[in-house]
Nucleic acid binder design. Structure first.
Lengths: 164, 164
DNA sequence: AATGTTACGTTATAATGTAACATTTTCCAT
DNA sequence: ATGGAAAATGTTACATTATAACGTAACATT
């Protein structure tokens, strides 16, 4: 059993994300520079809007924000999100139809998400044990994995504090 | 490591599902009888329509089928699907916005899905190892799981046969 | 300058899902 | 059996999520 680098992704998600937002944006720039990709103003702005939460953000919510500065339409947002997804800079949470920033673009963007139903915070982990097990199971019946969605709902430690 | 009862859920999914459709419908009836639930004609019909595929079926596709017999509107379908989901008789595949029959209502309806991108077939497994591992990981940071979504996309053995 | 390519603008519409309220059906206690 | 509550369905309208289709701008290459 390998160790998980993130001890408590919820704890680490807590507050002062002006800092982690800056870090994420800088990382994104670096990533795009490295691969000759264009992190255009729209894409940058969308990424920024996604990162302003550790909770998933909806496409039309982003669109509303964009509209504050300038008339915009759905394709603008979806195109930017597609680009960012492609590069692993954001993930779509399928069970919420919403998007969340990822600070680990290089890692191949296969992650597992733990979503707190109370505060909405999402913790992303990239756990090799889970991935190994899924691959092993798939292999048992000749299934070749191309993509993985693991979204776990529940209650995080902080939110359980008061209730339990 | 515990054994998985289903050796190859894809193989078992192959054709002649007139049979398994009948079985599933009978099981659903039995389940509802046992719990004093009303498997009304609409609910029965929707379940039947879902079960006519081993691939996920979309709500509006079901609606179109219902309309053939009688004028119907979206709430009719979604209500029936909600009931069936509640009872574990169908599952929603979140990443496809589509629904698939489940023949194991009693089992607590926590399953993992392997979805073939080529033929659309979905294999459902209820694997204790995966669930155990997810719980273990969650426990490490105090997360209490309420619901689980595990949807794995790729290519099944049959579809890989020709290509590889 | 002509062409190619990528990103973006714009309009319209498709696809998915729900709110709200009216009506009908079923259940069951009397 | 029957009247009243609860459950299920009908109906209309609308909200939300996503994409198609086509045109234009900006910039690079030849």
């Amino acid at each position: 059993m390998q160790k998980n680098k993130l001890k408590n992704p919820f704890k680490s998600a807590n507050h002062k994300h002006k800092k982690c937002l800056q870090t994420a944006l800088a990382a994104a720039k670096k990533h795009c520079d490295a691969f000759g990709l264009r992190l255009t103003p729209i894409r940058y702005r969308v990424l920024e809007l996604v990162w302003q939460n550790h909770a998933p953000v909806k496409a039309y919510n982003i669109l509303d924000q964009l509209k504050l500065a300038k008339s915009s339409a759905p394709p603008t947002v979806y195109r930017a999100l597609d680009f960012l997804k492609e590069e692993g800079l954001v993930h779509k949470i399928e069970s919420l139809n919403a998007y969340i920033g990822c600070d680990n673009p290089q890692e191949g963007h296969k992650s597992q998400f733990f979503i707190c139903d109370d505060c909405g915070t999402v913790a992303e982990i990239a756990d090799p044990d889970i991935r190994y097990l899924l691959r092993k199971k798939a292999h048992q019946f000749g299934f070749k994995i191309k993509d993985e969605m693991v979204e776990i709902k529940g209650h995080c430690q902080e939110c359980r504090g008061s209730a339990e």
